[in-house]
Amino acid sequence: MIFNKKKQLKQRVVITPQANAGSYWKDLWNYRGLFYFLAWRDILVRYKQTVIGVLWSVLKPLLTILIFAFIGSFLKIDSHGVPRLLLVTAAILPWTFFSSAFSEASGSLVANANLISKVYFPKLIVPVSAVIVCLIDFFISFAILLCLMLYYYLHNEYIPSASLFAIPLFLVLALITATGTGLLIAALNVKYRDFRIIIPFIVQFGLYVSPVAFSSADIYASPKIPEFAKWIYSLNPMVGVIDGFRWCVLGNAMKIEWTGFWISVAISFFFLILGAVYFRKMEKHFADVI
């Protein structure tokens, strides 16, 4: 074995009951390789021994889109004069990303229990890499949206607006929402496995209270819905994300309700901070209780 004589600065680690915040972020950087490999592993493993492989990343949201579009036209939900498939797709894609990223991240620590109890690394890597894997799925499924946009453009039913360029902004917002809530639930799940049961419920419930089957305009404009209910509705961080996506794709046909939007954004950031702080606080006990 060749002894690697590369000049390495000798590192000194002091282990105490108190967490050392400075060295944590440095470690996070040093372990970026592991971050990459965990994401790579999850992507590799996901479609091993499947026949159509990565096509599932397209097929799954596509089927959901078709079902929602069908139900939407069957129930005659207002499509605000834009092609219904586009309206649904602009909501399903960010929602699918959020729901899968949220549930994968939430379960990620427990799924990697073996790793956590046998090696040291900044645990933040695990849920964040789970989110990134879902982001890649999102990019793949984004092809559906592009195809639909092209189809309707060629049929003169749709003209893309400049707001399309704001998509990355809302994607980051979705990322923040999924990471924040994912970190929080992941850390809770280590100690309280009740969350394993709660997670699918949150996802299912979230689908009903988010503007996927309907649009926020229906809610905000409705005279039947009391004012406080509209406030509660906008507390859902995914309302801001999905409204944003729809505005990007469909332009001014789908205007954003700004008050509600900013509430959603604030909630997203609130969850990111809460999730990160709680995660960091619980992190040193993960190996003891997992």
Partner: peptide
């Protein structure tokens, strides 16, 4: 503890 898996 030495491997930093658990905190003392």
């Amino acid at each position: 503890v030495l491997s930093r898996i658990v905190t003392p």
